[in-house]
């Protein structure tokens, strides 16, 4: 069955086509302008960042050969031909790795507890007053925006070198990040149970405990696990500023050009991060089902 395609008279068609052309041209012009502005900003940024393509070209060989060197043992053989020699320090490294994991665990748990204590005050629907909410929000924002490693730098001076500074830095950063996420979960919670419990004459605390908490605890645990995963990465570099963990070994190896050690420690970190990703992902899937596991 063939249907006739109705064709408009030429005059009408011309005006329509003209309008279409104009609209497209305007859109194209705007796109081109945006791209031009972006390019100008990029060039400015390139000057600001002292980008020097010649340095890159001259030294790019170094980048490739750097990986070549970190994959070569002192004897000149490839690292994987002699794993025992490659991982000669595995005993020490595993210990430092354990310390890294502990730092992130203790930091995450402490941060989660503080975030838990603060988030009801930060959420719009449960906060006892706008002033409290404003102050808590700004506090969380501060803890979240200042990078963890900056806290670590300051804490190393206050608390001395060692893992304690790292733990506290991670705990503060985690409080900020989780506090915001937790508050968002609470804001999405159903308020009807709260009304029900308040109508029985319960206090604010009981309302939170019996009406909100049962709705949100799964979400809390899921986010806390996700944060733990991120914090393992973060803890692996805390050692750069002297705040404990495997980063200390890594920075020494990089700065002193112990090439095969660099690759060995990097492999250790990558494998650990993989295992953490997979196991926390599995755990989240197990505990909270598919939808909350992202």
């Amino acid at each position: 069955m063939a249907t006739a395609v109705s064709i408009l008279p030429a005059q009408q068609l011309a005006t329509l086509e003209d309008a279409y052309r104009k609209a497209v041209a305007r859109k194209r012009l705007r796109g081109a302008l945006a791209i031009a502005v972006f390019c100008v900003v990029l060039v400015l940024a390139a000057f600001g960042a002292e980008v020097n393509l010649r340095t890159l070209f001259t030294y790019f060989g170094n980048f490739v050969s750097y990986f070549d060197r970190i994959l070569t043992l002192d004897s000149g053989a490839r690292v994987w031909t002699d794993p025992a020699e490659w991982f000669w320090g595995w005993h020490k490294w595993l210990k430092m790795l354990g310390e890294t994991l502990l730092i992130s665990y203790v930091g995450t748990l402490t941060g989660a507890v503080f975030a838990f204590a603060l988030n009801f005050f930060a959420a719009q629907n449960t906060s006892p007053g706008p002033w409290v909410r404003f102050i808590i929000r700004r506090l969380l924002e501060f803890a979240r925006t200042v990078p963890g490693i900056v806290f670590a730098l300051i804490f190393v001076i206050a608390f001395g070198l060692g893992p304690m500074a790292g733990v506290l830095a991670i705990a503060i950063h985690t409080t900020g990040a989780l506090g915001k996420l937790f508050a968002e979960i609470v804001e999405n919670a159903d308020m009807k149970p709260v009304e029900g419990i308040r109508s029985t004459g319960a206090s604010w605390l009981s309302c939170m405990r019996f009406a909100i908490l049962p709705q949100v605890s799964a979400g809390y645990a899921s986010y806390a696990l996700l944060r733990f995963e991120i914090n393992v990465r973060e803890a692996s570099v805390m050692g750069f500023v002297g705040a404990g963990g495997i980063g200390q070994e890594l920075v020494v190896a990089i700065r002193k050009f112990y090439y095969s050690d660099v690759s060995a420690i990097l492999v250790t970190i990558i494998v650990t991060v993989f295992i953490m990703d997979i196991s926390t992902g599995w755990l989240r899937g197990r505990l909270f089902g598919k939808e909350t596991s992202r």
């Binding site: 600001g48 960042a49 002292e50 980008v51 020097n52 340095t55 890159l56 030294y59 790019f60 170094n62 980048f63 750097y66 490693i149 990465r233 973060e234 692996s236 570099v237 750069f240 890594l250 920075v251 990089i254 700065r255 990097l266 970190i269 990558i270």
Partner: peptide, 19 residues
Amino acid sequence: VDTLIWALVWINVVGLGPF
């Protein structure tokens, strides 16, 4: 691998500085 570690590696290649 964390950004900081990449930064250390690149410093070895192109030297200290924003690049």
